[in-house]
């Protein structure tokens, strides 16, 4: 009797173990898309591939996180092995150009996603439209897939009630005959009352298609509520972290309209001032 129980127990244990293993092996992770907007869905039937592109909010001129999800068309299983590159493109009648881009890589925050970013340097409009070209390679099938789609990029400035030409979401500035771009990013997501991690990205344009991250600048920030005329204490100026990223912290003592005044120094010389990143929440 005792032996029989022991055997039964072993069998049960083995089944449990195997079923656990088989679940682990199942690549069918349900990707959490909460808080994301679907920008585009590309079905490539002959490559058994679906590519979904998400962003946390409607793309705007400035720093935009982009999330990619690669799935098998047949069973929705996530594909993890492939590599993915993207190229934003502003198609204009005269001089078409690209934008500063951080290529997608496995996301730390969202399991199963690849996360990249594009700093759209201007909104879509009559002048031209933004498209995003995406290339997928390294698929098990050996196929290479390429597609592009249009990204409508809005101008947040246009929706602000506090109209001031100094309020920006992306700053363009010619410094020493080179075209620089600065954009802000809140890595924790949406702005909230309290201390917010605050990042500034700095890039310069080498040619119409090439942008280079700029490190080693000295930045200063000063938040202000334009409608009230006051700021907030204990902010941390962003410092260079490499790859064009500058990390600091900004304090919002209340919700409402906030302008974060930005000063940039290059080799102890002020190269940018009297301009603010603006946001409302």
């Amino acid at each position: 009797m005792k032996l029989l129980f022991k055997q039964l127990y072993l069998i049960a244990f083995t089944i449990a173990l195997f079923s656990a293993c088989s679940e682990d092996d199942d690549p069918k992770i349900t990707a959490d898309t909460s808080g994301l907007e679907l920008l585009h869905e590309q079905v490539v039937a002959d490559a058994d591939l679906v590519i979904e592109v998400y962003s946390p909010e409607a793309p705007f001129s400035g720093y935009n996180e982009l999330y990619f999800l690669l799935k098998k068309a047949s069973d929705d299983a996530l594909i993890e092995s492939a590599s993915l590159t993207m190229t934003p493109m502003m198609a204009m009648t005269e001089h078409s150009h690209s934008a500063p881009t951080i290529q997608p890589a496995e996301s730390d925050q969202r399991e199963g996603f690849r996360k990249g970013a594009v700093i759209f340097t201007m909104p879509s409009g009559d002048m031209g439209k933004w498209t995003l070209s995406v290339k997928v390679s390294g698929l098990d099938s050996g196929n290479e897939v390429a597609f592009d789609f249009e990204v409508p990029v809005i101008s947040k400035e246009a929706s602000y009630q506090a109209q001031d030409t100094k309020y920006k979401t992306v700053v363009r500035k010619v410094i020493n005959d080179e075209k620089y771009f600065f954009a802000y990013h809140l890595p924790e997501g949406k702005p909230a009352i309290g201390a917010n991690d605050f990042e500034v990205y700095a890039y310069k344009q080498l040619d119409m298609m090439t942008y280079e991250a700029v490190d080693g600048l000295t930045m200063g920030i000063e938040p202000e509520m334009p409608s009230m005329g006051h700021g907030s204490p204990n902010n941390v100026d962003p410092v260079s972290k490499g790859n064009g990223r500058y990390a600091g912290s900004v304090n919002f003592s209340m919700s409402g309209d906030w302008a974060i005044w930005l000063t940039v120094e290059q080799e102890s010389e002020v190269v940018l001032t009297d301009v603010a990143f603006y946001l409302e929440f």
Binding site: Y160, I193, M225, S227, S253, M254, S255, G256
Partner: peptide, 14 residues
């Protein structure tokens, strides 16, 4: 405290 400017977003704090 909630403030309502004539233009622009309302402002809130505890």
């Amino acid at each position: 405290m909630t403030m309502y400017p004539a233009e622009g977003v309302s402002m809130f704090m505890l």
